[in-house]
Design a protein around this nucleic acid. Structure first.
Length: 214
DNA sequence: CACATGATCGCCT
DNA sequence: GGCGATCATGTGG
């Protein structure tokens, strides 16, 4: 099934339906997203990533993230201050969305961090739906975007201004594991930095098994 | 589980 | 021209 079709074919009947009001979900304060990126990445474990489609809301609980530290981080798109149309959203204020396409076919969603002008972000790597939802559905940055129908068309939007894609606070997580990031072996020393965070109790954690406990 | 491969194309050099 | 912040599928242990 193509990723695009998931938006129109999977979502409407999805178990990912959620009503933010009924669930009592609350926005993060803007200041949270301006804090140190690794701190935000850790703090987003347990948060809710939701979107509205045809007036109904769908979403899932984030269980895996990675921090990308901007100009000093060889693994980051903004390494050495690179500033192109694609990367531009990373230079915005914390709380914006940055979506890019990898390998010509998969979208990856990021939450921009730090104040305007500092191009850092948190990659949303995996999430989990309610009990009964196939773990694989939202396991991996590409699958997460496909299941929720997130594409580059939404890159640059603000997640805190009441739009169709939002991020809400969760109940926190006290079983967080840490590891190096996945798929950035080309980044030299930066490839070893412990910037990946995940809920060790979730079955939806992506990546090789050797990086799932810690 | 580890590893290998093909798919597929926008972005940057 | 070359190469990914990936995934599905295949092989072999």
């Amino acid at each position: 099934m193509k990723s695009e079709s998931l938006l129109t074919e999977y979502l409407p009947d999805s178990s990912l339906r959620i009503d933010p009001d009924v669930a009592g979900l609350e926005d993060f304060p803007r200041e949270f997203f301006r804090l140190e990126t690794a701190h935000v990445a850790r703090g987003l474990i347990g948060a809710w990533f939701v979107r509205r489609y045809r007036s109904k809301w769908y979403g899932a609980r984030i269980i895996e993230t990675e921090a990308y530290l901007g100009i000093e981080d060889k693994a980051a798109h903004s390494w050495r201050g690179r500033r192109t149309p694609r990367v531009e959203p990373m230079y915005r204020d914390g709380g914006h969305l940055y979506v890019f396409l990898v390998y010509g076919m998969h979208s990856c969603a990021n939450v921009v961090t730090r104040p305007p002008g500092i191009p850092e972000a948190v990659l949303l790597r995996a999430a989990e739906g309610p009990e009964g939802t196939p773990a694989k559905l939202l396991s991996g940055p590409g699958r997460l975007c496909a299941a929720l129908g997130i594409t580059v068309a939404s890159s640059g939007i603000d997640l805190l201004s009441g739009g169709d894609i939002r991020l809400f606070q969760g109940t926190g997580c006290d079983t967080i594991g840490v590891s190096k990031r996945i798929g950035v072996d080309y980044a030299g020393e930066a490839a070893e930095w412990p910037l990946r965070f995940f809920d060790t109790t979730s079955r939806a954690v992506s990546g090789p098994a050797r990086l799932r406990r810690k």
